[in-house]
Design a protein around this nucleic acid. Structure first.
Length: 199
DNA sequence: ACAAGGATCCTCT
DNA sequence: GAGGATCCTTGTT
């Protein structure tokens, strides 16, 4: 399978997020096709964990593109991001939902026996299916071991909507249409309003 | 050393 | 549709 180059990923999050739809994240036997993403931008996005500056937790977002930023959410869920932009820019794309390409039995074990449409339709579920922890934060997704990112077949039509769960952000940031998915996908974390994204 | 809060998920109604 | 689980990270004292 084809891989991304570092340069292809070193672009603003709102440009990379739709491009990652259809891409493949894999680790061990498990391969997942990305079907829903959100952009977290730099420098003026108050929804982004990096907007107050670099900390040990969010450091992977400030490094070179193509690294994992994994953090613990609500004390329970590990959420997976792909770092992007140029070094020094704290920005990343959150992977919100996937469909299973390979390793369904492993995924089902990690997801309490769940298979099919409700196995991976949420960012915490994706982290669980990949068996992620904060130890994986900072790992290079372009290396040929561990977590790996591959190119995939892009969707025909893309829908976009406001991001989920960012009530703490300023209204202008809450209104950004930075959540992306393949139009009509049944694998998304929540329904999309009927707004088309024009590439 | 402490308090606050969170890019969610699941269960129940 | 609502609420609880659960614990780390962060900023402040």
């Amino acid at each position: 399978m084809l891989r991304f180059t570092r340069e292809e990923l070193a672009i603003p999050a709102d440009q990379l997020a739709p491009k990652l739809l259809g891409a493949v994240i894999s680790r061990g036997e498990v391969s997942l096709r990305i079907v829903e993403t959100e952009a977290y931008g730099w420098p003026d996005d108050t929804a982004c964990h990096a907007h107050r500056g670099e900390t040990p937790r969010n450091a992977p977002m400030f490094g070179p593109a193509g690294h994992a930023y994994v953090y613990l959410c609500y004390g329970i869920h590990y959420l997976f991001n792909v770092s992007c932009g140029q070094p020094g820019e704290g920005t990343a794309v959150l992977i919100r939902a996937c469909e299973v390409l390979a390793g369904e039995n492993v995924v089902a074990e990690r997801r309490d026996g769940r298979r099919g449409f409700d196995a991976l339709n949420g960012p915490g579920k994706v982290g669980a299916a990949l068996g992620l922890s904060t130890d994986d934060s900072g790992s290079d997704l372009l290396e040929r071991r561990g977590l790996q990112l591959y190119c995939g077949n892009a969707p025909n039509m893309i829908v976009c909507a406001p991001r989920i769960g960012i009530d703490y952000a300023e209204q202008s940031d809450r209104e950004r249409y930075w959540r992306f998915a393949e139009q009509g996908s049944k694998w998304v974390s929540r329904p999309f309003p009927k707004v088309l994204f024009m590439p």
